[in-house]
Amino acid sequence: MAEFTLKQLEYFVAAVQAGSLAGAARRCHVSHAGIAHGLNELERACGTPLLVRRKAKGVVPTALGHAMLPLARNILRDAAGVELLLQSNPGELFGELSVGCTLALSPALLPAIASGFAELHPKVELIFREASGGEVLQLVRDGQVDAGLAFRRQVPPDLEYVSLRPIRVKAALPRSHPLASRPSISLRELRDEHAITPDGPALEAMLAVMREAGVEPRIRWTLSSPETIRAMVARGFGYSLLYVFPEESRHDDSPVVAVPVQDQLPGNALVQVLPPLRRHVAKVDKLAEFLRGDVVGELIG
C-alpha cells in the first residue's frame, strides 16, 4: 500500500487549485521548497507523476492526478471530520484560526471576536485578515483563511456559506441631527440631504437600497473606509447607510447614531463563508456559534 501523509495530499490539492507550486505555497503557508518536497514524496509513494510541471506555466494534473483529485479531497474532508469529533468531546480548542473579514464588518466584529471568542477559547490563536469584500472572498476561495465574514449578497454561487443572523440597514446620522433621536426613520426623510457613500460594490448595494425606497441619493463624497465615512458623518457632512456599527456607537456620547430604517427593503445577512477545503472545522463551527450569540446581536441588531 502506498504510504502518504495528509499534508502531502493537502499540497497536491492546493497545487491543482492554484495551478502552480508558488500558489500552493501561499495557500498552505509553507515555502516553495516545502511544497515541492511534499509533492515529490507523494509521487514517489504513488509510483507515478501526479502533476506535469511546466516551466513558467505552472502545473497541471496528469490523468492519474485528475482521478486522484476527488479522492484526495474526500480524504481531507474525512480527516477534518475526525478532527471535529476529537476536539468537540470533551474538546478544548487549540491552534490557529484565521478569519478574513470585510472592511465594513471588521470595526464591529473583530474586536468582539478578539475579546469574547478568545475568552471562551483561550488556547486558540486568532489570525485576522482585513480586506474588501471581493478580496475576502478570494482569500476564502484560495484557502488562505479558515472562514470569511461577509454579507450574504456578496457571496457568489461557487462558495459555501453559513447564515449567522439577519441584519437591517441603519441610517448613520450625527447625534445633533433632528432625526437622530427617532426610533426609526423613512429613507424619504433623507432625500434632500447629502449622502456619504462607500465605493465599489458597496456603493451599488447602497444605491439599490435607496432606489428601492424611491429615493435618488444626493451623493456628496464616495469613500473607501467605513471609519472615514463615520468620521465624516460625525462632523455633520452628511448621512450614510450602514449595516454594522462598532460597539462605541451605542454609547450616549458617540458622535454618530445608528437609526433603524423602517422601509421594507430586501433582506441581507451576516454570513460565514467557507473555503472549498475546510480546515479546523471545530474552531470554525465554534466561531459561528459565537457570532450567533447575544454579543454580536447587540452590535448588529
Rank of each mutant, 00 (worst) to 15 (best):
R211I: 01
R279C: 05
E193Q: 13
L274T: 08
P107G: 04
H121A: 07
Y239W: 15
S249G: 07
A180N: 05
Q264A: 13
P226E: 12
P156V: 03
S224F: 13
K123D: 11
P246E: 03
H121G: 06
L39I: 10
H194E: 11
T102L: 08
T228C: 02
G301R: 07
E3H: 15
E41H: 11
L71S: 10
V60E: 13
G65I: 07
V169N: 00
F237W: 14
L159P: 00
S181V: 07
S132H: 06
E204S: 14
V145H: 02
D158M: 10
V155M: 01
A258E: 06
L274I: 14
W221K: 00
E160C: 09
P198M: 08
A180D: 01
F151H: 06
S240T: 08
D253Q: 08
P122N: 11
L109K: 03
R168A: 14
H29N: 14
H177R: 05
R188A: 15
A208T: 12
A14L: 08
E247G: 00
G200A: 15
E298Y: 03
G58H: 08
Q17S: 12
V233Q: 01
G23I: 14
A67M: 12
L39E: 04
V233H: 02
R191T: 13
I167C: 13
G58K: 10
R152G: 10
Q138S: 08
F290C: 05
V136I: 14
L6D: 13
R73N: 07
S254W: 03
N74F: 15
V281E: 01
E10A: 12
Y243P: 00
L76R: 08
D253M: 04
K170V: 07
S31L: 10
R191G: 04
A15K: 03
P275D: 09
G91T: 04
E212M: 05
E212Y: 12
D192V: 05
S224I: 11
G143W: 07
L9D: 04
L287F: 05
A104I: 06
H280K: 13
R44C: 02
G81Y: 10
I75G: 00
L187R: 05
A25M: 01
Y161S: 09
Y161N: 03
D146Y: 10
L21S: 00
A24V: 06
V99K: 03
A22L: 08
G23C: 14
A114M: 05
P276S: 11
L85M: 09
V99W: 05
Y11I: 04
M232V: 05
S31F: 09
R26P: 00
R292I: 10
R230I: 07
Q8T: 03
L109M: 07
E212T: 15
V82Y: 13
H121R: 10
D294T: 14
V140I: 11
V281Q: 02
A72H: 00
L291Y: 07
D263F: 09
G297K: 08
D263L: 11
L126S: 01
D146A: 15
V124I: 15
T222P: 01
H29S: 09
Q154W: 01
T48L: 15
G65Q: 08
R235W: 10
E212H: 15
T102H: 10
G301P: 00
L287D: 00
F128W: 09
E125I: 10
D252S: 10
K283P: 01
L139M: 11
F4C: 12
G65D: 11
I75D: 03
G293S: 15
V244M: 01
A67R: 15
L85D: 10
L287A: 00
